[in-house]
Design a protein around this nucleic acid. Structure first.
Length: 357
DNA sequence: TACGTAACGGTTGAG
DNA sequence: TCCTCAACCGTTACG
């Protein structure tokens, strides 16, 4: 994979189409917002489109997490062995049963809930492929398949209350659909704490104290999604710094950011996401490539390995902010937007090194 | 000017 | 192994 990854947006920032911003940047956005910096200023400071800033802040306010959602993958399977078993039972007890009737029974018997009950078509397929030939002649199925029962389809929407949480295999959540109110500080969704800004802050703190913190590593780690997935599944360590695992340390490491690291609010003003060394710093320099070559951020063996470039440092290198557009700094210091003043600082009792004031 | 959001082109990963 | 598809992404443009 070539290093030619990355594009430059209108603000001069570098991004990779289709890929999420590094967590460090995301965190930075939230931190700045909580410091009262207006979204438009954050956008300019970090050179991230305002739409993105808006989206990230909105998501954070809604979920408490700064992390991107899980990308790719499929819906969690609903036709689990248990479901199939029940369908088989229904079919055996009543060979003439309709798929939609089976569906209703699955719900009635609490085998499934409305979020994971198989669609009529799925049940039909199961009957045809897995059960039809086991219990009853397939001829039973076809004719009876109310092939389309649109009426029921709406029930089969996947949209779990919480899109990211659907106790999907991927997510591994224990509480699908759990939605945490914004105010609740950290973790929302299912990704337990690991994904919360607070946790990340904690991470940062950890990193700052870590021997390897500041190490110039730059290899990036595994995919963010992987990280997320791991964490979403429980993430025991998320709550305590000792639990710091790769997951914690490698938040956005999908991007080889040389100067990334979780930000330190203090550097906000002069902050520029991009390291001095190169304009594309956010994602690693030209040489670094936005994404680690070789496809896929293969996991690094050691979570805390050298790959992590999270140093107490800031996303922004102490570089003057080169604004293609203009320099706009905090004209209106306190944006009313921010309404969760302490969320970032209260978790883990880890104060934000807000030196920016 | 600031901001929310739809559209767009892109990536990802389970099936 | 390759393809499909639906999830997500960030940028852009519009109102």
């Amino acid at each position: 994979m070539e290093q030619t990854y990355g594009e430059v947006n209108q603000l001069g920032g570098v991004f990779v189409n289709g890929r999420p911003l590094p967590n460090a940047i995301r965190l930075r956005i939230v931190e700045l917002a909580q410091l009262g910096i207006r979204p438009c200023d954050i956008s300019r400071q970090l050179r991230v489109s305002h739409g993105c800033v808006s989206k990230i802040l909105a998501r954070y306010n809604e979920t408490g997490s700064i992390l991107p959602g899980a990308i790719g993958g499929s819906k969690p399977r609903v036709t689990t062995p248990n479901v199939v078993k029940h369908i088989r039972e229904y079919k055996q007890s009543d060979p003439g049963i309709f798929a939609w009737e089976i569906r209703d029974r699955l719900l009635a018997d609490n085998v499934c809930d409305k979020y994971n009950v198989p669609s009529v078509s799925s049940i039909s397929r199961i009957l045809r492929n897995k059960i039809g030939n086991l219990s009853q002649p397939s001829q039973y199925d076809s004719p009876k398949q109310p092939a389309s029962q649109p009426t029921y389809n709406h029930l089969y929407q996947y949209p779990y209350p919480n899109p990211i949480s659907p106790g999907s295999t991927k997510v591994g959540s224990h509480h699908p659909g759990v939605h945490m109110p914004t105010g609740h500080v950290s973790i929302a969704r299912q990704w337990p704490s690991a994904h919360s800004v607070n946790n990340i802050l904690g991470i940062r703190t950890f990193m700052e104290q870590s021997p390897i913190a500041g190490t110039e590593g730059s290899v990036y780690s595994p995919k963010m999604e992987d990280w997320a997935s791991v964490n979403r599944s429980g993430f025991p360590g998320s709550q305590n710094m000792n639990g710091l695992e790769k997951s914690v340390v490698e938040p956005d490491m999908k991007y080889p950011q040389s100067a990334s690291g979780l930000s330190t609010v203090g550097s906000f003003v002069p902050g520029c996401v991009y390291p001095t060394t190169n304009q594309y710093g956010v994602y690693g320099g030209p040489g670094a490539g936005y994404v680690t070559p070789g496809h896929h951020w293969q996991t690094q063996g050691n979570p805390l390995g050298p790959s992590v470039t999270v140093h107490g440092g800031d996303i922004a290198a102490p570089v003057t902010f080169k604004h293609p557009v203009r320099e706009v700094v905090n004209r209106k210091p306190n944006s009313p937007i921010i309404k969760i003043p302490e969320t970032l600082s209260n978790i883990h009792g880890l104060p934000i090194p807000a030196s920016s004031s």
